[in-house]
Design a protein around this nucleic acid. Structure first.
Lengths: 309, 309
DNA sequence: ACCTCTTATGCTCTATATGAGCATTAATGT
DNA sequence: ACATTAATGCTCATATAGAGCATAAGAGGT
């Protein structure tokens, strides 16, 4: 296909490992939060998935509930500093059950909202949006070269951040928008340094972008596949479950409707016991009905189908 | 992350290029249909996408409307015959506009239903399902080692092929099921040869699997993003559009509802002219409203949201 | 000119899903 | 007991999806 001869390339793996700890979506990091766990491609496993799974379980001593390939990044600016060889990075999303040793924080786990403060709308629109992000993007809009570009930029900003129709799945688009507007730094990319970045922790290389990819993927996924349960303890109340979904989606849900949904889908079954005192009426405990993973395949359709004959 | 040292790896690119020709979804192949277009990783383009795009446009002399990364395959059995080096293959899905030089068939374009005859339900359930596939899978179910395994297999077969609830997006799952059941051959994988495979052309290496991945992705995609238009000529009738979607989804659609959907979404606008005589009342011509690509971002949500405040 | 065929279009109806809100009930812990 | 905090049970309005009936408008043959 392309004509150039093969050239030396380094393959690395990156993992976005997610767990829920105290109603916060946490992601495993290294180097004081600056890196995602990553390492060279391992040739000894039959598949990348099993290699990744083995590695993670060795590190965290917890089984990986769910693994999914995210994306393969191979842009030119991704080159190894030492050898100058191009880096191709294959990234994965992994879900693991929380452990919550109550206080004994696992080192390395960070709330992903530290990296993306503007993504947490659980208590309404975060202040940072109106106070810092929108002004900055407003300026970026004005800086467009002509009226048409200005219009396009405005439309993009509105889509990404508008109050009325906040779309939680646009995490990556928002990050990319902020990046283009020069509002977040990203090492290793051909950009001048940023004077006053929008709040939120940065990461080295493009790891923050990979994280945004994982976040977006997970937010989309929970809406049509029961993956939340991979993050839950075996038994849980519907309240806990709701808070888990809210933590991931970054927005509040309607309690009654949430229950109705879970119920109708037959996702859970009662264990027969109730939760310990969490202050208030204790909820019934439920467990995930693993059978439904078999029963119902993927969902899906938005097409006006004709009769099945 | 993994411990083994870096090892020599070959990276290759694979492309699933789709076009619609005469109401058939066609895919570009090489070697008499046995291979997907592929080649070594090219280091000279800033991103993989641009590299791929340039290559395709050079080959087909047609612009690539839409490109999306599919998946990165890196299983152990994928090794280069000559060097023994492991092959990592990054695959892409690309959509290009049909050209339909009326008769002068472009070489290399094949209907994807040649590879997956059981996926075309436009005229009801294909005979091959009841006649060959289900019996074969029935035998596979019976061959399970114990009752539990038998039950699991049965459930899987039902999900994949059941008449009532045919899910067109499960293309890849179906292919994998047939593969596991020993009903389709796949070179390069650790499997004994198949005696009497189910009808459908095979491909070399795992290219047929990559194709199935592309098909599944595209079928899922058309339901929430207006990508069909990348396959259509500039002007088209709603009838043509419907046939295009049907070709991709592999199932018949309800005509009136299809129109209602297209209309409500504001996807198209009339050109003011009508189609030439195709036998029957000529339909109005429409064109895709490119603006909506900007207007509406991705769709999406299945969560019981609380008020937006 | 007339008749038959093939599409294109307009509308209606029903079941279900989704977003919201009101009203109760049941433990906790002080 | 009583205020508090959750958990539950229901009802309503609107939007959407799956189906089907009826009509309109050219094409093509007789």
């Amino acid at each position: 296909m392309p004509s150039a001869g093969p050239r030396s390339v380094v393959i690395e793996l990156n993992a976005v490992l997610v767990a829920l700890i105290d109603d916060q979506p946490q992601v495993l990091t290294l180097e004081d939060g600056a890196l995602l766990p990553s390492g060279p491609f391992e040739g000894d496993h039959p598949t990348l998935q099993t290699g990744l799974r083995a590695w993670v379980e060795r590190q965290t001593h917890h089984p990986l509930g769910y693994v999914e390939q995210l994306y393969t990044f191979a842009d030119r600016y991704r080159t190894d500093a030492a050898s100058g060889r191009r880096i191709v990075s294959i990234s994965y999303l992994g879900l693991t059950r929380e452990r919550s040793m109550k206080g004994e924080r696992e080192p390395g786990w960070r709330s992903w909202y530290r990296y993306f403060p503007w993504e947490d709308w659980r208590d309404g629109r975060p202040a940072v949006v109106a106070k810092l992000i929108l002004p900055k993007l407003g300026k970026w809009i004005d800086d467009a070269r002509d009226a048409a570009a200005r219009r396009a930029r405005r439309q993009r900003v509105e889509q990404c951040f508008e109050q009325g129709a906040w779309n939680d799945e646009l995490t990556l688009q928002r990050y990319e928008l902020l990046y283009e507007a020069g509002a977040v730094p990203e090492a290793g990319r051909p950009r001048r340094p940023i004077a006053d970045p929008v709040p939120g922790d940065a990461m080295r290389y493009d790891h923050r972008r990979i994280l945004a990819t994982g976040l977006a993927r997970l937010r989309a996924k929970i809406k049509y596949r029961p993956v939340v349960f991979e993050l839950m303890p075996p038994d849980f109340t519907l309240g806990q479950l709701q808070r888990a979904v809210e933590a991931l989606a970054g927005r509040p849900l309607h309690k009654q409707n949430f229950r109705r949904l879970v119920d109708q889908q037959g996702l859970v079954e009662e264990t027969g016991t109730v939760a310990a005192g969490t202050g208030g009426r204790p909820g019934k405990l439920y467990r995930f009905r693993r059978e439904i993973l078999l029963e119902r395949a993927l969902a899906g359709t938005k097409l006006p189908l004709a009769r099945a004959e």
